[in-house]
C-alpha cells in the first residue's frame, strides 16, 4: 500500500514537473506546478512528516502558486484573455484544504502507517512542533523574532511597491 502511495505521489510530482517545464501555455504550466508540489506534499506524508506536508500545501500549492499566477496575469501582454475571477476561487479552496490537512494530519498519519511499513517517526509531528514553538526554552524566541521580521519586511515591501505621491496624481 505504501509502495503504491509512493509511486502515486512520486509520479504526480514527476509528471507535474515535466508538464510544467514543457507546456506551451504558461498558465497551464502554473497549474502543472500545483500538481508537482502536491505530489511532493504527498511524499512528505508517506514519510510521516504531516506538518511539513500540510505546510507544503498551504504555502507552496496555495500561496506561492497563486502569487505566480497573479504575476503571470499582471505581466503578460495578452493577460486580458485570462479572467482572474476564474482562478480567484482557488485561494479559499486551497486555504481550506490546508487548514483541513493541518487539523486532520494527526488522524491521517496512522492510516498511512497502517497501510504500509514504518518509515520515519510513527507519531504525528504537528502538535510537537507547535509545543516547541511556544516553549521558552525551545524555539519561542525565533518564533517571536519571525513576527518582527514579517512586520518589518511588510512595511518595507509596501514602501518599495507603492507609487510616489507625484506618480499617483
Amino acid at each position: 500500500m505504501l509502495d503504491f502511495m509512493f509511486i502515486f505521489f512520486a509520479s504526480l510530482a514527476l509528471l507535474g514537473g515535466l508538464l510544467m517545464a514543457f507546456h506551451p501555455n504558461i498558465v497551464h504550466s502554473a497549474f502543472a506546478l500545483v500538481a508537482a508540489l502536491f505530489g511532493v506534499a504527498g511524499l512528505y506524508w508517506t514519510l510521516g512528516a504531516d506538518f511539513l506536508g500540510a505546510t507544503q500545501v498551504l504555502l507552496y500549492v496555495g500561496g506561492i502558486t497563486v502569487l505566480l499566477l497573479f504575476a503571470v496575469m499582471l505581466s503578460t501582454r495578452d493577460a486580458a484573455r485570462i479572467s482572474i475571477a476564474r482562478y480567484a476561487l482557488m485561494a479559499p479552496i486551497v486555504g481550506l484544504l490546508g487548514a483541513f490537512l493541518v487539523t486532520t494530519g494527526k488522524a491521517l498519519v496512522p492510516i498511512v502507517r497502517a497501510a504500509g511499513g514504518a518509515l520515519g517517526p510513527t507519531e504525528p509531528t504537528t502538535e510537537k512542533i507547535g509545543n516547541l514553538f511556544m516553549d521558552p526554552t525551545a524555539f519561542m524566541l525565533p518564533f517571536e523574532i519571525l513576527a518582527v521580521l514579517l512586520l518589518v519586511v511588510l512595511v518595507g515591501a509596501i514602501t518599495l511597491a507603492r507609487r510616489g505621491e507625484e506618480d499617483a496624481a
Binding site: 524566541l141 523574532i145 518582527v148 518589518v152 519586511v153
Partner: peptide, 30 residues
Amino acid sequence: ALGACLLVSTDNLIMLLVGMELLSLCSYVM
C-alpha cells in the same frame, strides 16, 4: 540592527538563520 544583534549572540543554528534573515531582508529593502 536587531537581526545583527541576535546573529552575533546565538550559538544555535535556527536562531542564527532567523537573525541573519532579519538582517538580510531589511538590507535588501534598504
